[in-house]
């Protein structure tokens, strides 16, 4: 009986994260354009873009292998599953226990691995440059991400995202210095992982600065659509992650009624929209970094997260 009720709720989340991902990207682009004093594309433009890409023929290089053709689907599936397992509008969903924070982060690592391989498949210099830089960024971002997991898990006593969100949403934990540092670190890591300014520029096609765009340079048509959608879902995933760890308020409990669930969905959408507005504001206020400044940026993320961990040892009150 419980299964029959729980399964639709889990499926709803899995469908929702994909359904609204392009919209969130649309909000980011619109706000960014307005900040730059441009009119900007309509909010629903990403949906139109995906539709258009899907219905175009895919141009594939002569020497592309199956790795190149399968990678977009694999990447999308991985990102989608990861996003489906992060608590969004309710905690304690049916499959929320099948991957904890570390596993979700590692799943994103699988996606990155697949995409980096796809970048090297055709054997062009740009694909290689993108893959190589992406893996360098990952090697700096992952230790920081793990330290963030540590900081949160030390306070909550668990790495289950659902349990952490349930605990933090009660307000028992309160405002803590270590959580603030962890939030700062997570934002920095999220910026790097989602290829946003100042680490990477999603709208650049200037050869020397591309990272993510360089890896997917050869892609077109339906393959490109899958990759774009995966990037949008990943952004929603990070937004949801920040929301469920640091502002879990309004999230529905595991035995919530329909009203609470509806409220949870509304609260989640509001938080996502807020983040989608804040992100371009942050982006337009800084300049993109040179590639070899990334270690400093991600190193400070790591330092902030490490400080959050060590503060916990100094005093439980932090």
């Amino acid at each position: 009986m419980a299964l029959i009720l729980d399964l639709p709720l889990q499926l709803l989340q899995i469908v929702l994260v994909v359904a609204i991902a392009p919209l969130m990207m649309g909000v980011t682009r619109k706000v960014r354009a307005r900040l730059l004093r441009r009119v900007g594309p309509p909010l629903l433009q990403p949906y139109h873009d995906l539709w258009k890409l899907m219905h175009k023929e895919a141009v594939v290089a002569d020497n592309a292998s199956w790795v190149y053709r399968r990678a977009p689907y694999a990447l999308f599936a991985i990102t989608w599953v990861a996003a489906g397992l992060v608590p969004t509008y309710a905690t304690g969903l049916l499959f929320s226990w099948s991957a904890d924070l570390i596993a979700v982060v590692a799943l994103l690592g699988t996606g990155r691995f697949v995409l980096a391989l796809a970048g090297m498949d055709i054997g062009t210099a740009f694909g290689g440059i993108g893959s190589s830089r992406e893996m360098m960024i990952a090697s700096l971002a992952e230790p920081a991400m793990l330290m963030i997991s540590f900081a949160v898990a030390l306070i909550a006593g668990t790495t289950q995202l659902s349990a952490i969100a349930a605990l933090f949403s009660t307000g028992e934990v309160g405002v803590r210095v270590s959580l603030g540092l962890a939030l700062l670190a997570l934002i920095m890591v999220g910026i790097a992982e989602n290829a946003r300014i100042p680490i990477d520029n999603p709208s650049t096609h200037l050869e020397l600065t591309m990272v993510h765009e360089a890896m997917i340079l050869e892609y077109s048509g339906r393959h490109l659509a899958m990759i774009e959608l995966a990037a949008q879902v990943k952004l929603v995933l990070y937004f949801s992650l920040i929301a469920c760890l640091f502002v879990p308020f309004g999230i529905a409990g595991s035995d919530a009624g329909p009203l609470h669930l509806a409220l949870g969905i509304l609260a989640w959408l509001a938080k996502l929209t807020l983040f989608a507005v804040l992100l371009p504001i942050a982006e337009t206020s800084v300049a993109k970094m040179r590639v070899f400044r990334y270690p400093a940026f991600l190193g400070s993320a790591f330092a902030a997260a490490a400080l959050a961990v060590f503060l916990r040892f100094v005093s439980r009150g932090f």
Binding site: H55, V60, A61, F126, A225
Partner: peptide, 14 residues
Amino acid sequence: LASKTTRKSPPWDC
């Protein structure tokens, strides 16, 4: 639901 057509071509490489 979407396009199934594929065209082979030399790599673009910017």
